[in-house]
Amino acid sequence: MTYLFAHGLGQHSSSWKITLDYIEMTERVALPDLYTLVETDKMDYHNLYQAFCGEKDQANRKAAERLSHRIKGANFGIIEKAGHEANVDSPKPLAEIIKGFWC
């Protein structure tokens, strides 16, 4: 089974609600607090296939591109009209990208 492991620094997990409503598969979604450990062996970065960034998020774009190149089989995507908080800025386009590779 695959999981969606979504997070953002400084964001509360509730900021993902609108995006997740468009996906409709929330039973396989983990929204961990980055300051705590996820206590399961089912989710990790070994099965990350997609890294993405808002088109206006210049601060993190290079890092997201590098991450996607370093992980075997990963892809990189741009969320149009989104800034640093793509899940808040463009929840539906982000959900469509996630559904395209995950669902």
Results as ranks from 00 to 15, higher is better:
1 M>W: 09
2 T>G: 03
4 L>V: 08
5 F>L: 09
5 F>K: 04
6 A>T: 14
7 H>R: 15
8 G>T: 13
9 L>C: 11
10 G>K: 12
11 Q>G: 09
13 S>R: 12
14 S>K: 12
15 S>C: 10
18 I>F: 10
20 L>F: 02
20 L>Q: 01
21 D>R: 08
22 Y>T: 10
22 Y>P: 05
23 I>C: 14
25 M>V: 03
26 T>S: 03
27 E>F: 08
31 L>A: 06
32 P>N: 00
32 P>Q: 00
33 D>V: 03
35 Y>I: 02
36 T>P: 01
36 T>Y: 03
38 V>S: 04
39 E>P: 06
39 E>D: 12
39 E>H: 13
41 D>F: 06
43 M>W: 05
48 L>I: 07
49 Y>C: 11
49 Y>S: 13
51 A>M: 14
51 A>N: 13
53 C>K: 02
57 D>C: 09
58 Q>Y: 11
59 A>C: 05
61 R>G: 03
62 K>M: 08
65 E>Y: 11
66 R>A: 08
66 R>E: 13
67 L>T: 08
67 L>C: 13
68 S>M: 13
70 R>G: 06
70 R>H: 02
71 I>S: 10
74 A>S: 11
75 N>H: 10
76 F>D: 05
77 G>C: 11
77 G>D: 05
78 I>P: 02
86 A>S: 07
87 N>T: 09
87 N>Y: 14
88 V>F: 05
89 D>K: 01
89 D>R: 07
90 S>P: 02
90 S>H: 01
91 P>F: 04
92 K>M: 13
94 L>G: 05
94 L>R: 01
97 I>C: 00
97 I>F: 03
98 I>A: 09
